[in-house]
Amino acid sequence: MKIQINKDFLSGALFGVIGLGTIILAQGYKLGTPGNMGPGYFPIILGVIMTLIGVTMLVRSTLKPELSDHVASWEIRPLIFILASVLLFSLLIDSAGLIVAVIVLVLSSRLGGRQGSLLELVLMVVVLTLIAVGIFVYGLNIPLKLRPW
């Protein structure tokens, strides 16, 4: 029997890891009794169920690999750039303010896709910054820091 690394197998593995992780982390919390549960009781129940679900999926995907297919491709480039742009926003918003954060967000997220001219990019940065400031700061009166100084 050959193990197929298909979508169901990977999901099962993921569920199993999350389940086991929950059980391990919950060891640090008081268990209590069924009639008076501590903070650790319910997490352990969830963890056990989750692990069982994970194991079930691993076994089933191995016995019946035809039920699921392989992951065709991973969109690595957009994955990295989109997540990075969000993280950059979170790093900049407190210190550098809204304007810088939005500009960096738009520029770096643009690296995730590759089409479009430079002029278009400049226009997008200007328009989106204006929209962001206009709607959130002036329209909704949210006290956001605008500039680094």
Binding site: I82, I93, L98, A101, L105, S109, A132
Partner: peptide, 15 residues
């Protein structure tokens, strides 16, 4: 085009 949309969605979501 989608390339105009997703930066807008990102900006709105992040803020």
């Amino acid at each position: 085009p989608y390339r105009w949309l997703y930066p807008l969605i990102l900006v709105f979501s992040c803020i």
